Structure formats: C-alpha cells, structure tokens
Computed example of a mutant assay.
Amino acid sequence: MSNDRLMKVLLAPIVSEKSTFIADKNQQVTFRILQDATKPEIKAAVELLFKVQVEAVRVLNTKGKAKRFGRFNGRRRNERKAYVSLAPGQEIDFAQEIK
C-alpha cells in the first residue's frame, strides 16, 4: 500500500449524535471512506494519519435514499462508513492539526 493511496482512503470524519455516543462509549471513531477501501487500508490510513493503534475496523455500506425535490425525483448518494476501534488509552482529537 502506497502512502498516496492511504492519504485518499479517509474522506471525512462523521460527526453526529450517534457517532459521538459511540466514541464516548466504545472508543470508536467513524469515518466516511472510499467505496473500494479495504479494512487493512483503513487501519493503515488511520494509524498513519493520527499516530494511534487500531484494534479493529468495521465497514458499513448504506444505500442513498430516494427523495423528492419539488417535482423532481432525486437520490442521495450511497455512502460507505468505517467504525474504527482504538486500542485502550488511544484517542483522536480532531481539533489538532494534522502534520
């Protein structure tokens, strides 16, 4: 796995009520990831970017909802999420800058 690929695997952290509850309770962090990302790539990317130890990675595919925008039918995008379990004592602080 090249560093260029690992830098592109994680798209964004997911900050929602559910993800903050999971982070506090289970020491897990949630990320939006590429559609073709694998678990070993996700683990390596988190360890490379945030300098933490990762215990496990769980991946979830969600289908985009069909929605109506006025008189037009539309669809929200499909999304792939990764729930990353951190080792005990590890923490990711999104407020700090990444070097």
Rank of each mutant, 00 (worst) to 15 (best):
N3F: 01
N3Q: 02
N3K: 01
D4V: 02
D4Y: 04
R5M: 07
K8G: 07
K8L: 09
V9A: 02
V9I: 07
L10Q: 02
L11A: 09
A12G: 06
A12H: 05
A12F: 04
P13D: 07
P13K: 02
V15S: 12
S16R: 06
S16V: 05
K18F: 12
K18R: 13
K18H: 12
S19N: 01
T20Q: 12
F21Y: 13
F21G: 11
I22K: 10
A23K: 13
A23P: 14
A23C: 14
A23G: 15
D24K: 11
N26R: 08
N26I: 10
Q27W: 06
Q27P: 10
Q27Y: 09
Q28E: 15
Q28D: 13
V29H: 02
V29W: 00
T30R: 02
F31W: 04
F31P: 01
R32D: 14
R32W: 07
R32A: 12
R32M: 12
R32P: 05
L34Y: 05
L34A: 11
L34N: 10
A37I: 06
T38R: 02
T38S: 08
T38L: 08
P40R: 04
E41Y: 01
I42Y: 04
K43V: 06
K43G: 13
K43M: 12
A44E: 13
A44C: 05
A45L: 04
A45V: 03
E47W: 01
E47L: 03
E47S: 00
E47F: 00
L48F: 07
L48H: 06
L48I: 07
F50K: 00
F50V: 04
K51S: 06
V52L: 07
V52H: 03
V54N: 00
E55D: 14
E55L: 14
E55R: 12
E55Y: 09
E55H: 11
A56G: 15
V57D: 07
V59Y: 01
V59H: 02
V59S: 08
V59A: 07
L60F: 13
T62Y: 13
T62R: 15
K63D: 15
G64R: 11
G64M: 11
K65Y: 11
A66M: 14
K67M: 13
K67F: 10
K67H: 10
K67R: 14
R68S: 05
R68D: 10
F69R: 14
F69L: 15
F69D: 13
G70W: 03
R71P: 04
R71A: 05
F72A: 08
F72P: 00
F72Q: 12
F72V: 09
N73Q: 05
N73K: 06
N73L: 05
N73Y: 06
G74R: 03
G74L: 03
R77Y: 01
R77A: 06
N78W: 00
E79R: 01
R80M: 00
A82P: 01
Y83T: 03
V84A: 06
V84I: 05
A87Q: 03
A87V: 06
A87M: 06
P88N: 12
P88I: 08
G89T: 08
G89V: 07
Q90W: 06
Q90N: 11
E91H: 12
E91S: 14
E91C: 09
E91P: 07
I92C: 11
I92F: 04
D93S: 09
D93W: 04
F94L: 10
A95C: 14
A95Y: 10
A95R: 15
A95Q: 15
Q96I: 14
Q96Y: 12
Q96L: 14
Q96P: 13
E97W: 13
